[in-house]
């Protein structure tokens, strides 16, 4: 009996953020009835989809006690590369004036390959040179941004082909394509994390890296895979983000990694390593997106929105650490 009530309390403290945000959603939907419209939900689901893909990418790094601060800039670069390759043939400001019309899937592949090279470098630098992930990917963040500036010559991009933007705006049975894309990527990651050796090795490395090595896990290879996969997911996210925005600038994706880290943490990915679930990450992203959307509906000043978001990030991490510090 006694233990049970204690557990109930623990359940509330551990999920306090989720509860608060849900309460907020209820309040907002009462105050502003059009919060609950299909239109708004499809809006939220489109935003959530892209953020979810980024958060999934970064989750592998976090679970192995690493990080990927180059996430946002990689998203930006992917968006820009896709943009330059998928402009309308008759668009005046075409980046490559004589470029033939490329198949969309080919462009997506190009973007993924290019970005995963950065992941490969991150992984190698972290595994072989033993550079702390925080520093390695911080350096990469700047490098990727630089490359993006060089490549686009700092020009804004626009005039995207219909079939490209349709990926973001299109719907099937009233549900945005992006929703399905994110759903399948989420499913894939769930499978990877729970049903494959790669997943088990990832959790093991996060749990105890030296024990992982002694258990015969190729730590370097696993980490490199994790960072490459992360960059590939950032590439996909950037590609989709470009489609959604219908244009791109070099500022695209700025500081997305911070939000992704926050979302993962809210969703229970532990910064101490070895812990984190795909379902949790989804909840984390949803909480964050609902929070943003609710604040917009309540017409809270954007400056204040930043303050609230920042506070939420700190509280989320504090709660996460508290779970570990908590007296059992």
């Amino acid at each position: 009996m006694k233990t049970k009530s204690f557990n109930g309390k623990a359940l509330i403290t551990e999920n306090i953020l989720i509860i608060i945000v849900l309460a907020m959603v209820i309040v907002v939907s009462i105050l502003k009835p059009n919060f609950l419209t299909m239109n708004n939900f499809s809006n939220i689901s489109v935003n959530t989809a892209i953020r979810f893909i980024i958060a999934l990418g970064i989750s592998g790094c976090l679970i192995t006690r690493g990080n990927d601060l180059s996430a946002g800039r990689t998203v930006g670069l992917a968006g820009c590369i896709a943009g330059t390759l998928l402009q309308k043939p008759d668009y005046g400001d075409r980046f490559f004036p004589n470029l033939p019309e490329l198949p969309i899937i080919l462009v997506l592949l190009i973007v993924i390959v290019v970005c995963s090279i950065f992941g490969l470098i991150n992984g190698c630098v972290i595994s072989f040179w033993q550079v702390p992930p925080f520093i390695a990917t911080l350096g990469m963040q700047t490098i990727v941004y630089g490359i993006c500036l060089v490549y686009t010559k700092s020009l804004p991009l626009g005039g995207y082909r219909r079939d490209y933007t349709a990926i973001a705006s299109g719907k099937f049975l009233g549900i945005p394509y992006l929703f399905f894309i994110a759903f399948f990527i989420g499913l894939f990651m769930w499978f990877l994390y729970n049903k494959t050796r790669h997943g088990k090795y990832m959790y093991a490395i996060g749990g105890n890296e030296s024990a992982a090595e002694v258990s015969g896990i190729n730590v370097a290879k696993t980490k490199i895979r994790i960072y490459m996969l992360a960059s590939s997911l950032f590439a996909i996210a950037g590609f989709l983000l470009g489609a959604k925005a219908g244009g791109a600038t070099t500022g695209l994706g700025l500081s997305y990694e911070l939000e992704a880290i926050a979302e993962c943490t809210i969703g229970g990915v532990s910064t101490n390593g070895g812990v984190g679930k795909v379902s949790g990450i989804l909840i984390g992203v949803l909480v964050f997106e609902l929070l943003k959307s609710s604040m917009q509906f309540l017409r809270i000043d954007t400056s204040w929105q930043y303050i609230v978001q920042g506070a939420v990030i700190i509280i989320a991490v504090a709660l996460d650490l508290r779970k570990y510090l908590a007296k059992k």
């Binding site: 959790y203 749990g207 105890n208 024990a211 896990i217 070895g274």
Partner: peptide
């Protein structure tokens, strides 16, 4: 503690990790 257990993982994972192949 240093090179044996994966503290945050389950007993099942700890037992099977070296023989997943």
């Amino acid at each position: 503690r240093g090179t044996g257990i994966f503290g945050v993982l389950s007993i099942a994972d700890n037992v099977s990790i070296s023989s997943l192949d």
